[in-house]
Design a protein around this nucleic acid. Structure first.
Lengths: 140, 140
DNA sequence: AGAATTAATCATATCATCATGATGAACGCA
DNA sequence: TGCGTTCATCATGATGATATGATTAATTCT
């Protein structure tokens, strides 16, 4: 898979919030059940996202998680970033730390356009874009 | 990283063989040293590639590994396949087993063109293409 | 046959990811 | 203040990827 399991859960959770959250925060329990993902595991993922400023968390009764930003301003890249650098630092196909036009790996020239299209997709696609697809976030 | 470490080693080894091997097989020891990769670990990777029909292995004196095919007929996808399905079965961004035009995930429509370009790159780029890049395979 | 060479395999270690269960800390409300 | 709700954190385990070292099997050459 392109993304780690954790990053996928992070994405799904944000999508779930965008589709099901309103003014009220949603509880981890409900999100976890809705996505069919382990509760405590999801809790940690949501916590990381809250620390990254993507979500607001509220404790106590009527607490839970909310998006802290407009879904139309929230890119997939930002959501993935805390869990997975894939689209950014490690864009070299052969896993080199330094791989640029000046110090290319054997695949650099041919690969860079393809990898750029992946990065562009992730940074220009927003949660808003996906949450209007009509497809269910759940099950997978 | 897009590819697993193992798949990267597999790719590098084949590139190394394409660039340094001639009629004579190359020994694991030499390839491992040339690529700066653990010897026994590489040995297993080469063995898998031999079983997949990509390499010929010969034991005993003057033995080692050779490409079993013309580098111009050897795609990156074929080399990666025994180690990593990424480009094929698990093309769904959200990790769903079934994700198609009929049963799409939320990201399907937007992601499919991008992922197709990755698959195309891997299946249409050959070892020959990369081994003439002028860049070193080693280090990284 | 015997020695040298080389890949193949086995047993094990290490680490990150993925995950579970139990407990702690903050909060709201009566 | 006290109780229930909810997120936060801790301790632990399972699994797979990534290795390492030692041994075995096949082959060549003399």
């Amino acid at each position: 898979m392109l993304l780690s399991q954790t990053a996928v859960y992070a994405l799904k959770a944000v999508l779930y919030l965008a589709e099901n959250g309103s003014d009220e925060p949603l509880r981890v329990d409900d999100i976890a059940r809705g996505l069919n993902v382990p509760r405590n595991y999801l809790s940690k993922i949501l916590h990381v996202q809250a620390k990254a400023g993507l979500l607001d968390s509220t404790r106590g009764p009527r607490g839970g998680f909310q998006l802290s930003r407009d879904p139309a301003q929230l890119s997939l890249a930002e959501i993935i970033a805390p869990f997975d650098d894939i689209a950014f630092s490690s864009a070299c196909l052969l896993g080199r730390e330094r791989c640029s036009d000046d110090t290319p790996c054997a695949a650099h020239t041919r690969w860079k356009n393809v990898s750029a299209s992946v990065r562009t997709f992730l940074s220009e696609t927003t949660i808003h874009d996906l949450s209007h697809s009509g497809a269910s976030v759940v099950s997978g």
